[in-house]
Design a binder for these strands. Structure first.
Lengths: 163, 163
DNA sequence: TATTGTTATACTCTATAACTATA
DNA sequence: TATAGTTATAGAGTATAACAATA
């Protein structure tokens, strides 16, 4: 393991006294770890997303479903699951809930009678359009500290991590 | 909202038929959104972290606590909470669990009798050292698709998102 | 036999309220 | 009055198993 933090444990000798409450915490290797930083970044973005989507009475995963169904009329659950990294049992409830609210519609799939094809209702289309504008503003605000070039780089690198 | 996806809804006319099951899903703006990509990246890393830390019978948040306590002997819970973005009630159980396993030790804080100062036991020190090696290998594997330069850039940009 | 979708269920993580002891 | 820590509890999010209907 050549790069980062070269095992500098006990750089200062371990004094047997408590930390002063105002001393900065040495997060050590944690600060340079993708796991730690990805979690904190996601928490930060997630909190903002949740807050903004609540204006439309939508949870973040619900918005994701609406956005995907809107762009892919006739899409089926298994495709949503793959795209959203969600398990079928956890998606089922969301779809039913969105259907009950009159935002999406389920029809039998013409080629595969096991599946249900999904599409937005007129009301769902309207709400999704509004929520997508919210999402665009959210994006702008969440990444306010980054230049346009940095934003593109970040998205690109995050995609590489997933693959 | 000047940059990304300039409202290209219905670029193709909405055909009233179901999606063929093998057609690629158009994730639209989702694919360029930090929220979507940060979640997927974090899920990917999180799954790997959980798997690797299980070898030491540790959960990821438990490793974070051990690592911080190891580098900051005498640290108190509120400092851990701030560093780890965790609420006090959710940290309490973890600390008690780690104490029961004989990995950390709680002593009354010399200057503040409300607080408990934390430190690793000899056994905790040994396990933490092993887990930190695991974490370093994990880092290497999770970011295998990125160059060293890209890794540094990614961490740097993630930090900017949080602030 | 494999896949789609559903129900039931459990486990983890996260969030809020209420309490104590101390600063 | 504010803070450190704890308990209890509620709510999301995520996970597995089992099942029916269809491919």
């Amino acid at each position: 393991m050549p790069p980062h933090t070269p095992s500098r444990r006990h750089a200062a000798p371990p004094v047997d006294s408590a930390e002063p409450a105002d001393a900065p915490v040495d997060a050590g290797a944690l600060y340079t770890q993708i796991s730690y930083n990805a979690r904190r970044a996601w928490l930060s973005i997630s909190a903002l997303s949740t807050q903004r989507m609540a204006v439309h009475k939508l949870k973040v995963p619900e918005f994701s479903v609406l956005s995907l169904v809107g762009r892919n009329p006739g899409i089926i659950s298994s495709q949503l699951c793959a795209t959203l990294d969600t398990l079928p049992p956890n998606l089922a409830g969301r779809i039913i809930s969105l259907e009950r609210r009159g935002l999406i519609e389920r029809r039998p799939h013409p080629q595969d009678r096991r599946a249900m094809s999904l599409r937005l209702t007129p009301e769902g289309t309207k709400l999704t359009a509004q929520a997508e504008e919210t999402a665009a503003r959210l994006e702008e605000d969440a990444l306010a500290g980054l230049t346009l070039s940095e934003r593109k780089t970040l998205i690109c690198l995050l995609k590489k991590v997933c693959s």
